[in-house]
Design a protein around this nucleic acid. Sequence first.
DNA 1: TATGAATGAGGTTTCATTCAT
DNA 2: CATGAATGAAACCTCATTCAT
Lengths: 209, 209, 209, 209
Amino acid sequence: MARSGSRRPRADATRNRAALVTAARRVFERDGFVAARITDIADEAGLAHGSFYSHFRTKEDALAAVLTEVAEEMLHPGPEFPDARDPAAAIEAANLAYLQAYQRNAALMLVLEQVASVDKDFLSLRLERSRAFLERNAGFISRLQLDGIADPDLDPELAALALSVMVSRSAYAVLAVDLLEADLAALAATVTRLWLNALKIPVSARPLI
Amino acid sequence: MARSGSRRPRADATRNRAALVTAARRVFERDGFVAARITDIADEAGLAHGSFYSHFRTKEDALAAVLTEVAEEMLHPGPEFPDARDPAAAIEAANLAYLQAYQRNAALMLVLEQVASVDKDFLSLRLERSRAFLERNAGFISRLQLDGIADPDLDPELAALALSVMVSRSAYAVLAVDLLEADLAALAATVTRLWLNALKIPVSARPLI
Amino acid sequence: MARSGSRRPRADATRNRAALVTAARRVFERDGFVAARITDIADEAGLAHGSFYSHFRTKEDALAAVLTEVAEEMLHPGPEFPDARDPAAAIEAANLAYLQAYQRNAALMLVLEQVASVDKDFLSLRLERSRAFLERNAGFISRLQLDGIADPDLDPELAALALSVMVSRSAYAVLAVDLLEADLAALAATVTRLWLNALKIPVSARPLI
Amino acid sequence: MARSGSRRPRADATRNRAALVTAARRVFERDGFVAARITDIADEAGLAHGSFYSHFRTKEDALAAVLTEVAEEMLHPGPEFPDARDPAAAIEAANLAYLQAYQRNAALMLVLEQVASVDKDFLSLRLERSRAFLERNAGFISRLQLDGIADPDLDPELAALALSVMVSRSAYAVLAVDLLEADLAALAATVTRLWLNALKIPVSARPLI
DNA sequence: TATGAATGAGGTTTCATTCAT
DNA sequence: CATGAATGAAACCTCATTCAT
């Protein structure tokens, strides 16, 4: 009544949008993306379902909003900051970090898995990001080969791919889907050792000084 | 009571059922399981949609019928007949066979991926089968360790898991989803070499004669 | 093979028809007429559902067959053989007979109630039969009035109607639907006394000898 | 959370709900409950069929809404306010009121008859209400017996039942189903006289002054 | 006649999306 | 922006009936 021309979004609006994002994540994790209904999300946020459309245009839109809340680092296994002087340590650190992030977001990872299997656009996006990541990782392996540290007979790109998916899919199996009972530390130790063995990186290839 | 005589289904019945299974596979591969509609399947089979229900009760039911048409061998990566005297050869053969089967059924594999991500029951079934398979594979690795052929520091179960998913997920990435351009032979060579390296199986561990 | 030209219905046919009628009654009583499905009836008879149509054209047809198996007497309350010399005894006997028949066929009576409420044709048929019955009963009352035995102020037709439905609907309430716990004898005694009171028939109007 | 403001339904909402209730009654009366289709009701109300579900969950739900619009008095025959000082007048008034209400709602009564015969839950509800009503009526008769006004040989509960159904079922026969041509006044006079006779209530048991 | 697969009309229900208030 | 009723496209599933064998 009193002040009418509010230009910037009212506090309510911002708050409601945030509530919807939180609600969306909860509902997606609980019911899966496919089974989740707009109404459920709005209900969970304590809003009328019509209000959903004040902030998002589609369910996919809402998912995107959820994802921007999740750190990038979690999305890819492998050495983030490849340190050529101590590749074993780099790999170990990267794997551990990835698995920890995966564990924190395990329920959401299942959602992503589902969306990628159902939505071509989302799959493409995911593949594109993976390619960029793999390229870096292949470069890392190439350099190790050139330095005489890694098995020179391996195709760097295919090896990068195989080792990456080994880690990410193991995380899925153990941390998201309980294919096997195992604790994170054991899993990290195993995949790291397999990485190193697979590339034939001598564990003693640590900085002498 | 009723005299038998028409105990066996008419030729039509069998033929139509087969037609529905074929149609279901085609539609699932084209549209995905979730988006596939009963009507489309019946249409594709040249039958009225009501006829679908003469043979299956649900879409899941139809999928099950499709799957029983696909050989088991395709479902699991890894050495099927582990030959302790020449593990390297066994692994190589198993990987190649798996990848070839995967390639033949790549479109269907995507369907399975989707169903597992959408249907709890199907996921459970899949996990159960995977566990049985992993157990065998872990045993294989254990034996190699006892024989002094494989890296004794590895947890056999986690290693079996990680190496299995390495192969299956690489197949998915290259053969189903085109994350990377690569031919099957190269992929097979890479994953086999990674398996052997990872377990530290000496490639010379082949029978001398 | 051997004898082919069997002119009269085979023994099988007759037996199967009988089985269907029995099955129909059972299913109608169990599920009601509306909910009963052709398939259920055939199943119950141990026949394929297509065979139903070898004997009946519709569900209504099957019901008709069931009904012809049930005696007519059960269909109407009231004195069947009005004996003017001892109307009280006639009424008592008629009521008792009706209630006993109703009790024997209570489940079927519920089916008839349902069908009458759902199927216009069946209702018409029922009304037609009731009219004929009521006419006779009104005549009975008229004669009692002329003989100075029954209340002359009553409209014979309306009284016949009201007293008839009093008995039949009480039977429905107590014997079919358990509105009230009561045994048949008590119910019979009550409705008979009400009949006699209502018409002001002196109970002493019994034959002196 | 959300500011109220539109807590109360829009005018449309209330109006459309009312339109649906009216439409439902019309369709039920025209086609019967079983044959009535959701779509027809929505059409009759001038709404899309989906809108039906904004207000009701099932056809039964809609019927319930229709029924709450109909006064209770119509549901039970018998003296509502039994006046022991002039029972005859009370009975006469009650019967007349009931028959008039029945006539006004005759078409709907047929619907109720059908629903009771088809829907177990509805039947149970109806029986429960009837029991409560009968209890009161039996009490009424008991008191008359104690006061020496009514035939002491009658079981009050069974008599209450029989006389109630006599009235209600006569109403059904004459006013809903046209078993007999008769005007309401004559019917009322007949059932009232039968009530009084049946209980042996002296018609002179009216207040002298 | 008996069989049971095939047919397809028919109705139900869900839910994303719009839009007047 | 928030609300929640209105809309109607979509699929699903049932089952009476037909009919070739």
